[in-house]
């Protein structure tokens, strides 16, 4: 059970990310979570959105370079040490977490975190066996 992430290429210049965000906004695509990784020259904008298909359509139309990646969404107990529990499981099983980021805001007892790993199935098995709940696409849409 993975969720879809939209990864967008953006040049490191003023307004670079704005173009993408505006395009998504005008297409009524709602952003649930985002993170930016950048170098001197360019950045990668990673997004979890409520409607991936609509996001794909608008980005394609916009001529933006992007890819859709399967990532793992986990529900982390919203308390000190919550995230550590998840990461310990990953470390114990020698699963390298390429990157992770949290959802913009989630109310309730859990925080949502996105994990990017090499082998999704393996990570999902370990997390589930470790008693960690995963986030579903439906839940993201319902946020």
């Amino acid at each position: 059970m993975t969720i879809k992430q939209v990864s967008v290429f953006a040049e490191n210049r003023s307004g670079g990310i704005l173009d993408v965000i505006q395009a998504l906004g005008s297409a009524q695509v709602d952003i649930r979570a985002l993170s930016v990784a950048d170098t001197q020259g360019f950045g990668i904008l990673r997004l979890i959105v409520d409607n991936v298909d609509r996001a794909k359509a608008v980005l394609t139309e916009n001529g933006t370079i992007f890819s859709i990646t399967d990532v793992v969404g986990v529900k982390v107990p919203d308390c000190p040490g919550g995230l550590a529990q998840v990461l310990t499981l990953m470390a114990d099983h020698e699963i390298n977490v390429e990157y992770l980021y949290a959802f913009v805001s989630v109310s309730g007892s859990s925080a949502y975190v996105v994990l990017r790993v090499q082998d999704n199935d393996e990570a999902i098995r370990i997390l589930t066996e470790g008693g960690i709940e995963l986030v579903t696409e439906d839940e993201i849409q319902a946020l």
Partner: peptide, 18 residues
């Protein structure tokens, strides 16, 4: 210009390719 074939969501991979 970036191309779809070249792009990946992993920064480390992109910088290595660069």
């Amino acid at each position: 210009e970036m191309s779809p074939d070249f792009f990946t969501d992993k920064l480390s991979e992109l910088t290595a390719k660069e």
